[in-house]
């Protein structure tokens, strides 16, 4: 028996979310009194793989197969399912990111496993297996019972504290049996946004809405973000108007994020916007309308015009940083 996590890598390196996953997996494994195993796909140096041992992973199963080099969810599903069967995984945990969302449902069918997606806490009970998840885009929570022997969970990014737990960790190579006759999607082009803090990875996000008045007023917002080492986001009208790129749109139909701190500047807080940010640990709102709904979701607020408040906030932050 084991809890199995899918330890995704980015060009051979793990990210914070990989260790969040391990931290979650280790606590889940101790609840069901079993070991924590990780599966890694692609070329990752042993030194990197062994870092998982700092977060409770006692075994890493490493796969490197030419047919797994491009992200074909059908092939990767087969490979992970074979590992899950070999270690007799009773629970499989993936990140609720792009690849986790692509793999988890396929694995659920392959392993006949019930799935709870986008969880942000440990199960409340193991037998029956009950875990809480957000539904109606944050309008309610559901206690979901998984009725199958194997359970699959996807974990929201930034919802789990890293919990160091050093254990002795071994690496095992695994050769999956793949169907050579299957045609994978062919990658024609690939774009990477280099050097930018990813919205999904960011612990702090600074976001602007209509109250910023014009695309030309974004400089102070960007300066604030840089000072805070934050990613930048925006509300839907802003990306629709082309003031900011579409990949910054945060909200129900855009990106759904859960940073530690979300600073909403000139955003009124429509239901659809809140749906994308309601899991943030702390929301700060700066808006000139005291009755704006954003203040219902915010922990801290300043009533004022963005153009006037931002420079003062930046100055105050510089004072703190220079201390």
């Amino acid at each position: 028996m084991a809890v199995l996590i899918y330890a995704e890598n980015w060009e051979g390196k793990f990210k914070k979310l990989t260790f969040e996953l391990a931290s979650y997996g280790a606590q889940l494994a101790s609840m069901i009194q079993t070991q924590l195993v990780a599966v890694s796909i692609g070329e990752v140096a042993d030194e990197e793989l062994l870092k998982l041992g700092n977060y409770g992973v006692s075994k890493v199963i490493s796969l490197n197969h030419p047919q797994l080099q491009s992200f074909d969810s059908r092939q990767i599903t087969r490979a992970i399912a074979q590992v899950a069967e070999q270690v007799e995984a009773s629970a499989l945990v993936l990140s609720a990111n792009n690849s986790g969302k692509a793999l988890a449902p396929r694995l659920a069918v392959r392993l006949k496993a019930g799935i709870a997606s986008g969880v942000n806490q440990l199960p409340t009970s193991i037998s029956p297996f009950v875990v809480s998840k957000k539904v109606f885009s944050g309008g309610a929570f559901a206690s979901l019972t998984i009725n199958t022997t194997v359970k699959i969970l996807t974990l929201l990014q930034n919802s789990m504290e890293l919990k160091e737990q050093i254990v002795s960790c071994t690496i095992e190579r695994f050769e999956p049996t793949l169907d050579g006759g299957l045609t994978s999607p062919k990658v024609l082009e690939s774009h990477k946004h280099a050097g930018k803090i990813l919205l999904s990875d960011a612990e702090i996000v600074v976001s602007g809405g209509r109250g910023m008045k014009s695309a030309d007023n974004w400089a102070p917002l960007l300066e604030l973000a840089e000072l805070l080492n934050a990613a930048t986001a925006c509300s839907r009208p802003i990306s629709d108007e082309g003031w900011r790129p579409h990949d910054e749109h945060t909200g129900q139909t855009g990106k759904i994020i859960a940073p530690n701190l979300y600073i909403a500047i000139g955003i009124s807080g429509a239901t659809q916007h809140i749906a994308g940010v309601s899991s943030s640990k702390c929301i700060v709102a700066i808006n000139n309308d005291k009755s704006a709904p954003i203040f219902e979701s915010a922990q801290y607020g300043i009533v004022g015009d963005a153009a006037k408040v931002l420079p003062k906030l930046i100055d105050a932050l510089k004072v703190i940083k220079n201390k």
Partner: peptide, 11 residues
Amino acid sequence: SLTTVASYQPP
């Protein structure tokens, strides 16, 4: 189905 909702809670 493989899962069931046991109950709902308000946020």
